[in-house]
Design a protein around this nucleic acid. Structure first.
Lengths: 406, 406
DNA sequence: GCAAATATGTTAATTAACTTGACATTGTTT
DNA sequence: AAACAATGTCAAGTTAATTAACATATTTGC
């Protein structure tokens, strides 16, 4: 029942059931009773009473109200929201989003600040620290009250080392001890992850894919990446670069990609491609509202998304084209992974069915029947907060299980 | 450390470490000492002494000789080969291979018989039973001595039910209780799996990918399928149809596939495609030894492989072409899964570098650097026995852990 | 050749997580 | 109000672990 990124420390196999109970309580929508815990873990009611007693004594869990019929009503258990607070930090290529949450993963406050990731860690990380130091006191929370934090970045992560691997979009971040740096400044344990991976975790824990066994989260931002949650566990691959769906080759002689290859999904369907195709269309005189933006080569993906929302047909067509390419790559993923659900997140996903319908159609056409019949394709419920909420889930995992350890 | 398909029964969490020790002993090349066990499981030496005592008393494990330096020599432990015998049954589309193995997974005997899977289970399974009943006594083994068996079939499997899902190449097998039928006839526990999945298990346990964390086994036979072993666990997906790499679309308007789509990998690189392309070439008058085979449309994939081996340039070109297509699909897999190793098995893989080189080249060209640098692409060491040996591993898992349960 | 050093393996006493089986509590049904 | 039903708790017993001492086997140093 180890459901998240938290790895059970080898020494405490004896506490295995305590951690299992904790996770079941955390992720049970609307709480869970002792007897239900005993059924799911496979322990006796007496044992669960004892375990839950420990958790309540540690102030991690509290009793709440629930309903039933036939006999005595069960007492629902839930995480004690006041057990502590955590930070979820989502570092994107142009922005950083920071979320303050309580033990129940309820968002208490949120802040957003611009950032240019190409400036490297020596510039960016102090900026993040600065944002926290000026914003956090206004939320009525001291830095000392923060039990843990989790950060994600848009590149492959070597999670043991707390560094990024070989980041294509993150020049200068290579080998910088991101986690250690933040742990020292924030004074609490920090976990480093990949943005798509945390997006998957967020949508699995609180969003569109609650509790599914096999989930793929596709982040369609400037680039395109996937986070995989397989058999209830984040899957990172051998060097932490699993889920790099953005660099699957779709068109032999297609447009050049940031990775150096031609015809990658990212170069055909990502935000950067969306902007480039829009500029190209405008310069060719296509009839579109985007033509109002001058100069044409200042058009961004955001502009295209906004225009598509307002009904601009040309922009909608560009998005639909992205959808077909995404669908082709996702069809491969569905054939290989056979997931319960594919969650589409990132900026473009705000357009909903305009993007999802061509994806669904292509997946249905290009993957095996058994597999596409089993899969649900939905937009991210948490929207642009998927990754930050995944970071919150991860930070809560760390602190809850650390406290439960003893 | 749950390394194989065996799922630890919830009730016996207390025996968790016993099962972990058993698996470590099983898969440690050349045995493992008590102290090494204690290090890897994270228990004290005393605890390991007690656990190993139980295993020896149950006659599952025995002491062997080992070497060391600096102090007292450790006593190596290995599975007791005489604890029992198992059967590994690999049902292909045209043949069935059955392997008799002892506790150490050493092959004691092997039999091969033709079979036509399209005739359905009512014909095929009695044939398998017949083969076993006439062959097994000659090996000096009674059916009663068989502790367990595992069977694989070339289609998606619903392993809980012991049936196949929606098999494209297995008409009539749908919903037939394969496992239950065999359990009744063989009088021992039977496990049902997919051929690629068991191939992955076989190569992981005894072959090219020993002990790797993330392994993909690509079976290039009549069709093309992949078995995935991720984070040390067989990954089956939501409906048991994970790894269907054969039906990834590579060429929009490519040749039609058995699945109904166009341009699937299987239709471009599988054994069936190899034969079709050879026939086509011969009928177009290409210079090749295959022209000696008449009529041209009786040429099989086997013929092409044999000719390629003997230096026929046309046949070699056909194989190389298959390699490029396989490489394209495997590049996607490498991007998504980021495995340690990709093992190529099935008939065509016997050609070695003739097939592997174009695969390696294409993967290097079409996947991310971090990912292709980390991956090893090798031919199956167990050859045509990969799946049968995976079945042996699975059958041994079942009986070993069942006996260790108490 | 023999003690010292070193590493592996075992034993007995203790600890802690679980089970068992009885009992207590709190609700619905008749 | 009594019977029933389901949940939760308690106390005693069981068992897989730890701890700390000791036993065993092999190399090293003189």
């Amino acid at each position: 029942m180890a459901t998240t990124v938290w790895q059970i420390p080898k020494a405490s196999v004896k506490n295995l059931n305590k951690h299992a109970a904790l996770d079941l309580i955390r992720f049970a929508p609307g709480g869970i009773s002792r007897i239900e815990l005993s059924r799911q873990i496979g322990l006796t009611r007496a044992a669960v009473t004892s375990i839950v007693g420990d958790l309540i004594e540690a102030r991690l869990v509290r009793e709440a109200n629930g309903q039933h019929s036939g006999g005595r009503n069960p007492i629902n258990l839930e995480i004690n929201p006041d057990f502590g607070r955590v930070l979820g930090i989502d570092i994107g290529s142009t922005h950083v989003t920071i979320v303050l949450a309580n033990g129940l993963a309820q968002v208490l406050n949120e802040v957003n600040a611009p950032l240019d990731i190409t400036q490297g860690p020596e510039i960016c990380l102090p900026q993040v620290e600065q944002v926290i130091n000026t914003w956090l006191p206004n939320t009525g929370t001291g830095l000392r009250e923060i039990l843990a934090a989790a950060v994600d970045v848009p590149g492959p992560v070597v999670s043991d080392a707390g560094k990024v691997g070989a980041p294509p979009i993150m020049p200068g971040w290579d080998n910088f001890p991101i986690r250690d740096w933040l742990e020292e400044r924030l004074g609490c344990p920090v976990s480093l992850g990949n943005d798509a991976e945390f997006g998957a975790l967020g949508e699995w824990a609180f969003g569109a894919g609650r509790g599914e066994k096999n989930l793929a989260y596709i982040k369609v931002g400037t680039g395109v990446g996937a986070g995989l949650l397989l058999d209830g566990q984040i899957y990172r691959g051998t060097t932490g670069s699993a889920g790099e769906i953005g660099h699957i080759t779709l068109v032999e002689d297609g447009p050049i990609c940031t990775c150096g290859n031609h015809g990658c999904l990212e170069a055909l369907a990502g935000g950067r491609s969306l902007a480039l195709r829009a500029r190209d269309g405008v310069s060719k005189g296509r009839r579109t509202r985007l033509a109002e933006i001058v100069p044409a080569n200042s058009i961004t993906a955001k502009d295209v998304i906004a225009a598509a929302r307002r009904g601009d047909l040309f922009s909608q067509q560009l998005v639909t084209d992205s959808g077909y390419h995404l669908g082709t790559a996702i069809a491969s993923l569905v054939n290989l992974i056979n997931p319960d659900i594919v969650v589409i997140g990132g900026g473009v996903a705000q357009l909903g069915d305009l993007l999802l319908d061509p994806i669904r159609q292509t997946v249905k056409q290009r993957s095996l029947k058994v597999s596409w019949q089993a899969v649900r394709i939905s937009a991210a419920i948490l929207g642009r907060r998927s990754s930050a909420m995944g970071a919150v889930a991860q930070a809560l995992s760390m602190s809850l299980h650390q406290i439960a350890q003893v």
